[in-house]
Design a protein around this nucleic acid. Structure first.
Lengths: 135, 135
DNA sequence: ATATACCCGACTAAAATAGTCAAGTTTACG
DNA sequence: CGTAAACTTGACTATTTTAGTCGGGTATAT
């Protein structure tokens, strides 16, 4: 059970941004250097973050990105959902016509996976970006 | 963030076994039919379960597998670790000489991923196989 | 004997992952 | 005004992982 690197890098990059109090735009180039993440990969990630209103961009020289919310209110769950990192640990699907494992009925473990998803989501719901930089 | 099908099938198959009270051996063929899981894939899975002492095998006609423990004491975490489904959500590694993201220091989000792993593991530690079949 | 059922290594198609590449557009600043 | 810094975007790709299959075993109850 692994988290993908896009999500991980997103959290790293946003935590990096949040650790500067002044709200001057932060360039991806700087984040790239400080966090050892490929610039072009960051571009992909920030495109998604921007589309989901987690950051806004300022173009041109001295431009960069700024957080749209305060780090104390930005939930990690928002970041993950921006990157389509949906916590859906199995293919068991309530909504499809077919049930679990291609059958018409719920599989024996169906409720378990639902509970697991809820459990993990709760973790991300309760964590704020600020929690990462307080230490 | 997805769970792999080996782990999911393992839990399904063991829950299937546990739902029969008599401790007669259950053949993989029967599990395969009841749970719609490929017989040969089940063989792979049960090899691991056997090596990790979660089931024992009885060969020959009327053979099959039986649980080595009671369903009320078998933790899901044991099943997952048998399948090398280690809950290690990121590559951030405490033990390697290199730190996170190939650097010498802990990355800014390192503690977060540790907490996440602990959070998920706790879920599997507290769930017993019996919990799945009680409903 | 023989059918049933476990045993086990090797292989593979398809999907996901983790990026790179290339070609832009916008804007601050000298 | 020119230019460099920085964002924008779509397409592409090598590698790895996943989710199995294939095929040839071995053990044993009847």
């Amino acid at each position: 059970m692994r988290l993908n690197s896009k999500s991980r890098y997103a959290v790293m990059a946003l935590a990096d941004m949040a650790s500067f109090i002044d709200n001057k735009p932060v360039s991806l180039r700087d984040i790239s250097l400080r966090q050892s993440i490929s610039l072009q990969y960051l571009e992909q990630i920030f495109l998604r973050l921007k589309k989901n209103n987690i950051v806004k961009s300022i173009r041109g020289v001295k431009g960069g990105y700024v957080l749209t919310k305060d780090a104390s209110t930005l939930k990690l769950s928002e970041i993950f959902s921006a990157l389509d990192e949906n916590v859906k640990t199995t293919g068991c699907d309530n909504n499809s016509k077919k049930g679990c494992n291609g059958r018409s009925t719920k599989c024996i473990t169906h409720n378990l996976w639902d509970e697991l998803d809820v459990h993990i989501n709760a973790f991300f719901e309760n964590k704020k970006l600020e929690d990462l930089i307080k230490n």
